[in-house]
Amino acid sequence: MMYSLLALAVILGSVFLVLANLRLVAHDTFQVLRDTARNASRSGQLLPNMAFAALWLLIFALCQV
């Protein structure tokens, strides 16, 4: 019971920290995705990387069904 309460407190604390800084998290995520896409496009790896990402999204989606 004690471990469950501790785990719940850690999860709730993490959720609170993310929600409190949601704007910053969203901005940083967008910036990283933009820079990664730009670098992949310049190096000619954009399509293979997108195909790989789509494969993993498909795997995760099928695991939820």
Results as ranks from 00 to 15, higher is better:
Leu8Asn: 02
Val10Pro: 04
Gly44Pro: 10
Phe52Ser: 14
Met1Pro: 13
Asn49Ala: 11
Leu5Cys: 05
Leu19Met: 14
Gln64Leu: 15
Leu19Val: 10
Asp35His: 00
Val32Asn: 07
Thr29Gln: 04
Val65Ala: 04
Thr36Gly: 15
Leu8Arg: 02
Phe16Tyr: 15
Asn49Leu: 15
Asn39Cys: 01
Arg34Trp: 10
Ala20Asp: 13
Gly13Lys: 03
Gln45Met: 06
Ala26Ser: 03
Val65Arg: 05
Leu12Thr: 03
Arg42Gln: 08
Ala53His: 02
Ala9Trp: 05
Met2Phe: 08
Leu58Phe: 13
Ala51Gln: 11
Arg38Val: 00
Arg34Gln: 11
Asp28Arg: 09
Gly13Thr: 03
Phe60Arg: 08
Met1His: 08
Val25Gly: 02
Gln64Ala: 15
Val15Tyr: 03
Ser4His: 12
Ala53Met: 06
Ala40Ser: 06
Leu6Asp: 08
Ala53Gln: 01
Leu62Val: 11
Leu47Arg: 06
Leu55Tyr: 10
Leu22Ile: 12
Ala20Thr: 12
Tyr3Trp: 07
Thr29Gly: 00
Trp56Arg: 05
Leu47Glu: 08
Val25Gln: 00
Arg23Lys: 14
Ala51Met: 13
Asn39Leu: 09
His27Gly: 07
Phe16Glu: 12
Ala20Gln: 14
Ala53Asp: 02
Ala7Asn: 12
Met50Trp: 09
Val18Trp: 04
Leu62Asp: 03
Val65Gln: 05
Ser43Tyr: 10
Ala51Pro: 06
Ser41Gln: 07
Gly44Arg: 00
Phe16Cys: 10
Phe52Glu: 14
Met1Phe: 08
Val18Ile: 12
Phe30Lys: 08
Thr36Asp: 11
Val15His: 00
Ala54Asn: 11
Ile11Pro: 04
Leu58Val: 13
Leu6Phe: 14
Leu17Lys: 01
Leu8Gly: 07
Tyr3His: 06
Asp35Lys: 00
Asp35Val: 00
Val32Gly: 03
Leu33Asp: 09
Ser4Cys: 11
Met50Ser: 05
Thr36Lys: 11
Arg23Phe: 15
Leu46Ile: 07
